[in-house]
């Protein structure tokens, strides 16, 4: 079944197509949800709300961009809506003022996806959201500031801290593995 057939089927409320669409994208979107939540239960709630919205609005998808991108955007928006409803705290995270080697990227390669996800999830929520939005979703700091209701400068500094923290953790994990 092609992507177009899937969309047409979902528009007609065909459950076979809806199941197919879910099967195709639920795994990837679950990872997105995990990145914006504190536990699996929260992530599944997000995913559930996301797919309800996707099935309700699939007729609005204009097939100009990729379907996956459109689905991801809906999921992230739902996550951000939930985040907005809660007060975001930027706890202070201690980062050693070390200069890291240029091998960070190669270390990331060596780590499993689950390990990476775990490291990101260990970040305090505020930092986690900023990092996710900037590094993975590709939002600008201005967009992040608008979405999370924080200052643009604050977004920049939090991102820098989050990144540093992650680099530390990645290196530490690598050392432990060795």
């Amino acid at each position: 079944m092609t992507e177009k057939d899937l969309i047409i089927g979902c528009t007609k409320e065909d459950q076979v197509c809806q199941r197919e669409l879910y099967k195709k994208y639920a795994g990837k979107m679950m990872v997105v949800c995990m990145r914006y939540s504190n536990n699996r239960m929260e992530a599944e709630d997000l995913l559930q709300d996301g797919f309800i919205k996707i099935f309700d609005n699939i007729a609005k998808f204009k097939q100009e961009g990729s379907l996956e991108g459109w689905i991801r955007r809906i999921i992230v928006n739902i996550a951000l809506n939930k985040i907005r409803a809660t007060k975001m705290l930027f706890e202070d995270i201690s980062t050693k003022a070390e200069v890291f080697s240029n091998d960070d990227a190669t270390i990331v390669d060596k780590l499993s996806e689950q390990d990476l996800l775990n490291i990101i999830n260990k970040l305090p929520n505020g930092y986690k959201y900023v990092f996710n939005m900037y590094a993975i979703e590709g939002y600008s700091h201005k967009e992040i500031a608008d979405n999370l209701g924080i200052e643009e400068a604050s977004s920049r500094s939090q991102y820098a801290k989050a990144k540093k923290y992650l680099q530390q953790k990645v290196q530490h994990l690598e050392k432990v593995k060795i």
Partner: peptide
């Protein structure tokens, strides 16, 4: 590169949600 690698890895990663969710 560090960010791109994380992004790339996580975007390929899949976690199966619970069975009855659909």
């Amino acid at each position: 590169n560090f960010e791109n690698k994380i992004s790339e890895k996580l975007n390929q990663f899949e976690i199966e949600p619970s069975e009855g969710l659909l």
